[in-house]
Amino acid sequence: MSMYLQPSTREELISALGQLTDKSRIIAGGTDLMPDLRKKRPDVDIFLSLSAMEEMKEIRISDDTICIGAMATHDSIARNAEIKTWATALHHACSHVGSQQIRNRGTIGGSLANASPAGDMIPCVCLLGGTLLLLGADGAFRRIPAEDFTLGVSRTALHPGEVLFAIELPVRKDRSTAFVKLGSRKEVTIAQISIAISWDKGTRYQNPDGYLGAVDVTPVHLEEMPELIGQGPVDDAAKDRLAESLRDRIRGIRMNRKRPPKLKITEAERLYKERAVRSVVYDVFDLAETID
């Protein structure tokens, strides 16, 4: 029979982390874990629920840092006015995760720790220069850049006995951001492809940066954006150059792998992603025009 732990303080959480084994599972919102348990019925010795950890549900904002507890729900993040202002891409992503019921229950920490290639959170947190705070069974925090957290499908940099405790984002008042995704339907959809972009606030679009999601096991950094779209207004020709470059990146991701990919994509899905990338490029710049 499985043991169920539900700490409500940091001290209780640290004690619980010390009891975990490789058969234990941590429950955040449960929106991914519960369907997985029904499907696979794994042998779990300890369920560690974070639902009573009020400290991990807090969103704290200072002059230079946004600190989001890992148990903050997508809905609470989407409704936060300061996040909408200073981390707009994350606001966009959290506003369109699943259904309203999923947004009410699902958490940013659970989404990141689930490490799904189609996850909406990780491209945004990478774009925003996020740092993840990991709490260990020894009571110490380990800080890791968001770019280094996801290692593959359902694999993260979490060590045994660690939990994702909070996400820190720098407040960049000089930058604007946006996020869009394309799925099989308009609402309650899983991303087939997504893009998060940033640029200097008040410009169209100087020093652009971006991440592409749902095309590889980890988000793809778009280092080529400044060269492809320039430092000024982005016309259709510039968008098409960026879209063509991203199509080439998607083809290259598949062709350059030396072993069968863990991210299983059929040939039809690959072609869909290559063709759909133009739509998300145009969509994200259409959205960007409404910001600032």
Rank of each mutant, 00 (worst) to 15 (best):
E168N: 08
E244R: 14
G213A: 11
T218L: 04
D248F: 05
D216W: 03
S184G: 11
K173M: 06
V188F: 14
Q206M: 13
I190G: 06
I195T: 10
L246R: 05
G232V: 04
T177Q: 04
R241N: 09
Q192T: 02
P219S: 07
G202I: 02
V215A: 03
A243R: 07
Q192E: 11
K239Y: 08
P208N: 11
A178N: 14
E224Y: 00
I197E: 06
G202F: 06
P219G: 02
S176N: 04
D174E: 15
S198C: 13
I229H: 07
V215W: 05
K181L: 02
E223A: 13
M225Y: 07
I190E: 03
Q231M: 06
Q192H: 10
E244V: 12
T189N: 08
P226Y: 13
I250A: 04
L246I: 14
L246V: 07
V171T: 08
V234F: 09
A214P: 01
K173Q: 13
K186M: 05
W199D: 00
D209F: 09
G232R: 15
A243M: 05
D240H: 10
D236F: 04
I167D: 05
R249W: 00
D248Y: 04
T218R: 12
V217K: 07
I195G: 03
D236A: 10
A191S: 14
E223V: 07
M225P: 13
D235T: 10
I190A: 05
A166P: 01
E168S: 09
L228W: 03
F179D: 04
R175K: 13
I229D: 03
R204D: 15
P233K: 13
R172W: 03
R247E: 11
N207C: 12
A237P: 01
P219L: 04
S176A: 05
D216C: 00
L246D: 03
I250C: 07
R172Q: 10
E227A: 12
E244S: 07
G183H: 05
Q192Y: 05
K201Y: 10
R251D: 09
S198G: 15
R251W: 08
L182R: 15
D240K: 11
G202C: 04
E168K: 01
G183D: 07
P208Y: 04
A191W: 09
D248T: 12
S194K: 02
V171D: 08
E223W: 11
A214C: 03
V220L: 12
P208T: 11
R247P: 07
A178T: 13
I229Q: 07
Y205K: 11
V234K: 11
G230E: 09
L222A: 06
D236N: 06
K201Q: 13
Y211C: 01
S245P: 07
P170L: 01
E187A: 15
G183N: 06
S176V: 00
I193R: 01
D240P: 00
R249E: 01
R175Y: 08
V234M: 09
S184V: 02
L182E: 13
Y205E: 11
E168Q: 08
E187G: 02
S194V: 00
A178M: 15
G230S: 08
R204K: 15
L242W: 03
H221A: 13
V171A: 08
R175L: 11
K239R: 15
T203D: 14
S245H: 15
I195P: 06
R204C: 13
T177N: 04
R185G: 02
V217C: 00
S184R: 10
R204F: 14
D174N: 13
